[in-house]
């Protein structure tokens, strides 16, 4: 099995965020509302918010591995 590095994961999530419309805001609980630019910065800085976004995307990708199908 190929191991993906943390850096590669960060790049992948950043690439996914890059396609987000600039003005869109993601609200993360009590942490606040963030634009894509802010989230990308937080991922690059290894910020807890950035880590949370990575976790959300990894969770989604893992669901394919578990072969979760809806409907």
């Amino acid at each position: 099995m190929v191991k993906i590095s943390d850096e590669e994961i960060r790049k992948m999530v950043i690439a996914r965020l890059e396609i987000t419309p600039s003005k869109r805001k993601i609200i993360i609980g009590g942490a606040g509302a963030f634009t894509k630019k802010e989230l990308i910065e937080k991922i690059k800085q290894h910020d807890p918010i950035g880590q949370k976004i990575i976790e959300v995307h990894l969770n989604y990708l893992r669901s394919f591995k578990k072969q979760q199908f809806w409907g």
């Binding site: 805001k25 609200i27 609980g29 942490a31 509302a33």
Partner: peptide, 8 residues
């Protein structure tokens, strides 16, 4: 865990 949503 955190509840996350898009404003738009």
């Amino acid at each position: 865990d955190d509840f996350i949503f898009y404003s738009d």
